[in-house]
Amino acid sequence: MSFLKSETARAWALASPLVLVLLAFLVLPIIWILVLSFWRATEFAMVPDFSFENYAYLFGSTVTWQVFLSTFRYALITWVLTLLIGFTVAYYLAFHIRSSTVQMALFLLCTVPFLTSNIIRMISWIPFLGRNGLANQALLSMGVIDQPLEWLLYSDFSVILAFVHLNTLFMITPIFNTMMRIDRSLIEAARDQGAGGWQILTNVIIPLSKPGIMIGTIFVLALVMGDFVTVRFMSGSQRSNVGRLISNDVGLLQYPSAAATSIVLLCTVLILIGLLMRFVNIRKEL
């Protein structure tokens, strides 16, 4: 049995538990959604079918286009903000902190919230942003405004604030990781040639950090595009994105319609990521 002794067979045997989990809880469910998206729904039941009714309805509705547009808008704004903040923080940690112990401690400080509850972290914005929240109280007492701002909570502002709050970490980590592997002698060489701090940043560090930026971008876009909780909670159900469109359908037991929207969302996200992947080889970057 030379096959069983081969490297490939051994590797597949070791990877088999992973394969099983992914097949059962990733591949099969998605195939199931795909099948379901062609079913028809009557008022009381789902009817197996091969109909493009759900897709036709989806693409024919102006609501769909608006919701996709607003999903892209959330993703784009969140991406810009998390990139600016994440890059700055990673740059500070990687190039301005001299002791590696302090560096690791500060990096941990940035990552720990990732291991706490997102729901709680969203809830904790209420005392800040509410009508009687800290932000309004402070602005009122400073005389900047004379009545409380209504758009702080349950608005696009609070949705994006929460997205940035929850997801900046996904930018910091890969960018920091790439920056730590930049050969310091390159920076020294640039300095010897007379480059200033800004020139070193734009001509050496940013180009070499690109893989990290790409990985962070993939994470943030995927998480924001696929979200269905943050928008609901932070907008008080007043704003929508694709995820909410799907979960609303689920709430109405309109599974075939929810499935069709899910498949369109999946394709959108995968195409987006596929484009970004052309710029980076993830396996090499770990």
């Binding site: 990733l26 469910p29 994470f219 269905f228 969302l265 999946l266 996200v269």
Partner: peptide, 11 residues
């Protein structure tokens, strides 16, 4: 990176 809603709905 797959939107979580596909996992939860699909499973």
């Amino acid at each position: 990176v797959i939107p979580s809603i596909l996992i939860t709905l699909g499973v």
